[in-house]
Amino acid sequence: MPKHTFRLNGRQVAVDVADDVRLLWVLRDLLGVTGPKYGCGINVCKACTSHLNGKAFNPCAVPVKDIGPTDEVTTIEGLPDTVGRSLHPMQEAWIERDVAQCGYCQPGQIMTAVALVRRVAAEGRSITDEDLDGIRNICRCGTYSRIRDAIRSGAAEM
């Protein structure tokens, strides 16, 4: 079976698995990293959102063979380390605003939010209502309003 290696939350990891297995299952079923959640498996719900080299991506839609040895995959578990703190400012904003209800969607929501703020900052502007309207992540508990508030306050601290 082919061996695949990549960087995961700051560590080099290796797995033996078929090329086409999507990264979400490599993370969850083989490596036991369960922060990214399954909600659809077809890149719709965004519950699995993680970062690839600092940008948002959905591991349910990426075969493991597409990830190279130097690629850095960051899941919610590794997010605090990217800022060298015990919690990322966006996670703190989420706690401050008491966003989570069941919490199932929230790792994906936070990873989406962080990438959005980075992208908007790279464009030299700040978050708009249109940016927030454009977030596709499902929250079946309906925490959308608190998510919007938390993104704005988290962005201010990033």
């Binding site: 969850r28 922060g35 919610i76 919690l87 706690i95 008491d98 199932y104």
Partner: peptide, 27 residues
Amino acid sequence: RNRVDALAAVTGRKTFAMDLQVPDAKP
């Protein structure tokens, strides 16, 4: 009050059924 499980929820540590590691319980 904020939720008692807020930290677990935002760090991905909140454990749902499919996150449990029961020996040999394969997908």
